[in-house]
């Protein structure tokens, strides 16, 4: 589904991502794990065309999409829920969703899409006319995910969806992500919550200091001590 090869991202002299390879198969949840500053967000931003990569190729469903603008990638079937959610706080819940519907969508289809989101996220139905900025953290995360689904993506990139949420809410969000896979979506999940991520993921990668230090099936990663060591900086770069 998604194939990233030799990806490098740099901000001036700071080399945030140093030539990584990554593959996400159709229908998989793949976890991209790593400590703060590892380059996880940079990787997602580069895949999504927000940050221009210094090197590397990105293929989506076999098609080379390197260098495409974010809006073109959305049309190609990819979506990103960015770190910190970045909902449009002064807009209402419904406006946040409507803005993300593809331009050509007709009124009736749009209404159906909104209905679908309300069914998937009942809280959002209750809060449709409320300003998005007044939602709780968990509700905002649900809104951010619903917003990205409005574009009917096939591949979703999630950047730390559990960040800053209370433990029960975190569980709820992870259930939701697993539910998205069951709806046929392919997911690349960036997280610092290693245990929960590996519980729902099929495979995982561990990124440290901009380099991929580990990868493998989720169960194997969960069982090994390698991940923990990587987080403590005992292996890798």
């Amino acid at each position: 589904m998604l194939e990233v090869t030799g990806l490098e991202v740099a901000y001036g002299a700071i080399r945030a991502v140093r030539g990584i390879d990554l593959r996400v198969g159709q229908g998989e949840i793949v976890a991209l794990l790593g400590p703060n500053g590892a380059g996880k967000s940079s990787t997602l931003m580069a895949i999504m065309g927000v940050v221009p990569p210094r090197a590397g190729r990105i293929r989506l469903e076999g098609r080379d999409v390197s260098g495409l603008a974010p809006e073109a990638l959305v049309r190609a079937g990819m979506a990103l829920v960015p770190e910190g959610r970045r909902i449009f706080a002064p807009l209402t819940v419904t406006e946040n969703l409507v803005v993300a519907a593809p331009p050509g969508r007709r009124r009736s289809e749009l209404a159906a899409d909104l209905e679908e989101m309300h069914a998937l996220f009942p809280v959002l139905a209750e809060r449709r006319t409320q300003q998005a900025g007044t939602l709780s953290g968990g509700e905002q995360q649900q809104l951010a995910i619903a917003r990205c689904l409005m574009g009917r993506p096939r591949m979703v990139l999630l950047d730390e969806p559990s960040l800053g949420l209370a433990p029960q809410i975190v569980d709820q969000i992870f259930d939701l992500i697993a539910g998205l896979r069951d709806r046929g979506l392919t997911i690349l999940l960036v997280e610092q919550n290693v245990d929960l991520s590996l519980e729902i993921a099929d495979r995982g990668y561990v990124l440290v200091g901009g380099e991929m230090v580990l990868d493998g099936p989720a169960a194997a990663l969960a069982a090994s001590e390698g991940v923990e060591r990587a987080f403590l900086g005992l292996s890798g770069a």
Binding site: M48, F88, P90
Partner: peptide
């Protein structure tokens, strides 16, 4: 609505598919 969203967070507006 797209213009208001763009005024709030332009990059995010592109990330939801607006040219």
């Amino acid at each position: 609505i797209a213009m208001r969203a763009a005024a709030i967070d332009f990059q995010m507006t592109r990330l939801v598919g607006i040219r």
